[in-house]
């Protein structure tokens, strides 16, 4: 039972991080039809930025804030300069964002070196807390809370605000939105930058959990986010949340009970879902 509780908390914390990354990816894909391969790069730069700022100011919170700012700025620039010229050309977008991923991953390597840098947890959250006789890292509980808050925030944004209304309409029919006199390209930029900021926040929160930041972590986590999007259904918010939970929990439990399968478990899950429901768990048919 104790093991179960620890694994549950670990899995939920992982799910929160995966969700931060996958949410932006999924919304961008659903609304703009852009598969953003540079998404993991924002995650990577978020991680490095937070570590860099924390090393200079000593403040974890400033680091996280800086990461969000850098992520949003990168998203803004990428969308305006590189993604916009290729709207409607799916293949070109995939290729351009792949190119950006390569350049910015190597830039990170150039700036911060090829060897992993250590990343510390904030002092406030470094302790353990006893829950029902089990000691659990405070930081993981913090991650779960952040994940839930962000999920509620996005849900409210999509369903309760005018921006969300345009976003929902944009997923269904971008032409119709424009016909109604709304400049959808501004919303595209906003969504792209917002998604990038979330991914960067994910990176900033991820590095203290694993204790280091290295240049390959963007790609590794991007693949998890891709699997979540495929499993959950493209553009579906509920699907992304459910997919993140499924992947986070499954990852921890499989790694504990049957380590050899840890490598292939994610892909097996993806294969099973695709065979059973090709559009994903919560995907719209034909989307």
């Amino acid at each position: 039972m104790d093991t179960f509780l620890i694994l549950l908390v670990n899995g939920l914390a992982d799910a929160s991080l995966i969700f931060l990354m996958a949410a932006g990816l999924s919304i961008i894909l659903g609304m703009m039809g852009v598969l953003n391969f540079a998404h993991g790069t924002m995650f990577l730069w978020g991680g490095y930025t937070s570590v860099w700022i924390m090393a200079r100011t000593g403040s974890f919170w400033l680091g996280a804030l800086g990461a969000v700012a850098v992520g949003a700025l990168m998203g803004l620039v990428f969308e305006r300069l590189f993604v916009r010229p290729a709207y409607g050309k799916v293949t070109a977008q995939i290729l351009i964002t792949l190119g950006l991923m390569i350049v910015f991953t190597d830039l990170a390597r150039l700036l911060w070196g090829a060897t992993p840098l250590p990343a510390l947890r904030p002092a406030v959250l470094d302790g353990m807390v006893a829950v029902g006789g089990v000691r659990i890292a405070e930081y993981r509980i913090f991650l779960i809370i952040i994940g839930v808050l962000v999920a509620i925030g996005i849900h409210a944004l999509i369903n309760r605000t005018r921006i969300g209304m345009v976003m929902r309409a944009g997923v269904q029919s971008p032409e119709m939105v424009q016909a109604l006199g709304i400049d959808i390209s501004r919303y595209f930029t906003l969504v792209f930058a917002g998604g990038a900021a979330l991914a960067a926040l994910g990176g900033a929160l991820y590095v203290p959990l694993v204790g280091s930041v290295w240049s390959g972590m963007g790609m590794e986590n991007q693949i998890l986010a891709f699997i979540v999007v495929v499993v959950g259904g493209m553009g579906s918010f509920i699907g992304t949340a459910a997919g993140s939970l499924l992947l986070g929990l499954m990852g921890t439990f499989v790694a504990w009970f049957f380590p050899p399968a840890a490598v292939v478990a994610n892909v097996l899950l993806m294969a099973v879902v695709l065979v059973w429901k090709p559009a994903g768990l919560f995907g719209l048919e034909g989307k």
Partner: peptide, 21 residues
């Protein structure tokens, strides 16, 4: 696995994951 969904985007994501495995 990859052609199951039948579009370029899904195929790109799925093949990427398979290669990583």
């Amino acid at each position: 696995i990859a052609f199951r969904r039948g579009n370029v985007v899904a195929c790109a994501m799925i093949t990427l994951a398979l290669g990583e495995i």
